[in-house]
Design a protein around this nucleic acid. Structure first.
Lengths: 177, 177
DNA sequence: GCGGGATGCTTTAGCCCTGAAGGAACATGA
DNA sequence: TCATGTTCCTTCAGGGCTAAAGCATCCCGC
């Protein structure tokens, strides 16, 4: 009801399914912005779907899964700082995530032997088993989302994202820090 | 200190700048998952940078900017529901964002003439001016992030993301809504 | 030793976001 | 008309996230 909405949306109407893009239909001028909005849109939708899946199927969350996934790569355990750096999230955030996983019995924390400030957190057996289940669902969801993409395009996308990453990185260097 | 971390990280050490990927170095098997992690990484980094920019330069936030951007495409104003659908965020969330912008004088709310439940929110003159400034900075940040990408690759990425979007959409349809 | 700076972690305030619950207004069919 | 169901919006509880402040511990140069 009440939707003039001329332009792109109307032109793209015949497509079978239409996923709305953030700011879709806007008169975005520059190519860079258009690519960014599309990128953001894809990543938000997939992420939202994963988040929802974890809640509904496992009563867990994506960030908690991320912690488990990271810890799986540190068989001897990782310090909070290592976790924080690996996950690209703030220190305080890791604290609360680990607390939750700890009270669920999926990770265990022990003091670092060589550093009185640090503590080392590692997966428990139960945590490792739990992660295996979650990881399989996670992979299945992602594969489903990408199912409509031919292999060559997938590889091409992978390459282009690499270029983008280095572009982002060199920009970070140029603009101080 | 204390970083065995064999593999990719060590091998990639000579690169000038290294942006860490979420779960970087993990033994991610499937191509789909690798593409997803890279996509997520790019989008998170850019988004984080925008967020930071808005805070530092304008003491504002990305979601508030999104609301302004959406409203700019509704010259006659939009209902809360239209905003919520356009922004892909929940209804309650829009309420608080609009409240903030309202108390800052950037948007104004009036009751819908034909529907006692709905209210229509629109940009004020001040809000339109404010948005113009923000939008320019926003565009500049994005262009800087993509500056290292040749035009053809940008266009190719744009196309691939379109395929991905329809893949996501058809997946959504297949798995019931 | 030991004093001062760096580092590891936690705590807190504050914003973003969701989903569920609830109230008010609408719509519809009997 | 009015009872029922739907729609629009708000409120609230709860989790994620950050930046800044604070505490404990470490390290290093003197």
């Amino acid at each position: 009801m009440r939707r003039p909405r001329a332009g792109r949306a109307a032109a793209a109407a015949p497509t079978p399914v239409e996923i709305r893009e953030k700011h879709d239909g806007a008169l975005v001028g520059r190519m860079e912005v258009r690519v960014w909005l599309r990128l953001l849109s894809c990543s938000m939708i997939i992420e939202k779907r994963l988040r929802r899946g974890f809640i509904e199927k496992f009563d867990s969350t994506l960030p908690r899964f991320d912690v488990l996934a990271t810890l799986e790569r540190f068989p001897d355990g990782a310090t909070m700082g290592e976790l924080s750096r690996s996950l690209l999230v703030s220190n305080g955030n890791v604290t609360s995530l680990v607390r939750q996983l700890e009270s669920a019995g999926f990770v265990a924390t022990r003091p670092a032997p060589d550093d009185g400030r640090a503590s080392i957190v590692a997966l428990t057996a139960s945590g490792r088993a739990h992660f295996a289940v979650l990881a399989q669902a996670h992979r299945a969801w992602i594969e489903a989302a990408f199912a409509g993409m031919p292999r060559e395009e997938l590889a091409a996308l992978y390459q282009l994202l690499a270029t983008l990453k280095t572009s982002i990185a060199t920009d970070a260097e140029a603009s101080g820090k």
